[in-house]
Each structure stands twice: as structure tokens, then as C-alpha cells.
Amino acid sequence: MVWRMSDTFDIHLQELRRGTVVLACLQLLRAPGYGYGLLEDLARHGFVTDANTLYPLLRRLEKQGFLTSEWNTDEARPRKFYRSSAAGEQLADTLTSEWRALTGAIASLTADAPTNEES
């Protein structure tokens, strides 16, 4: 396997994005949502994720108590709908404030960053 510069970039990009999908799910699921629809909503908002990452993630978040689930039997095909629990909404708020703090911190870095002329 040839190691290209873009591969290392991809890894770091993936690391940066990893936590944001959890926050995005918790926010989007303040209203009840269905896995497949959620995948499209996330993509529309710019959160890149695969089905095989998202579906187990939703289960894990439910197991941790941040989501509740309900079977929708309106149609012949039962579908599992998820929704953020109270704890989930609290976590979403906490993660969002942390995100804002980090955004400010990074902005301050680029503001103070030494330019080439100063070195």
C-alpha cells in the first residue's frame, strides 16, 4: 500500500470529525428520527458518516442512556425511531458549549499565531 500525503491528512481529518457525529445525532434527534433518514439528514448538513458506523452508534448511545427508542408500526414494516433523552439533550448542550469554547480557543491561536516575518 503506497502511503500518500493525503492518507495522513485523511486520518487527522477523521480524528477531528469523529466526535462531531455524536453531537450532530443528539441535536438532530431532539425530534424523533429514523436511522435511514438520519443518515441523509447528517449528509445534508455536512456530517460525513457511513451506515455501518451510524447504526451501531445509535444503539450504543441508547445503551448509554442518551437516546430512547420506539418501534413505529404504522406501516407493515416496523421501523425503529430514536429520540434524544433528557440526558441526551443535556449532553448535547454540554458538547455544544465545549465546541464553542474550542472554536474560540482555536480562533485565538490563529490570531496570536506568529507570522513568517516575525521568526
Binding site: 435511514y36 447504526y55 416496523p78 421501523r79
Partner: peptide, 10 residues
């Protein structure tokens, strides 16, 4: 059951 619906819908 969950996966069946997801696969079918997709």
C-alpha cells in the same frame, strides 16, 4: 428487525 427495515428502505 431494525436492519431489515433499514436495508429495505435503502
Amino acid at each position: 428487525t431494525e436492519l431489515t427495515a433499514l436495508i429495505m428502505d435503502a
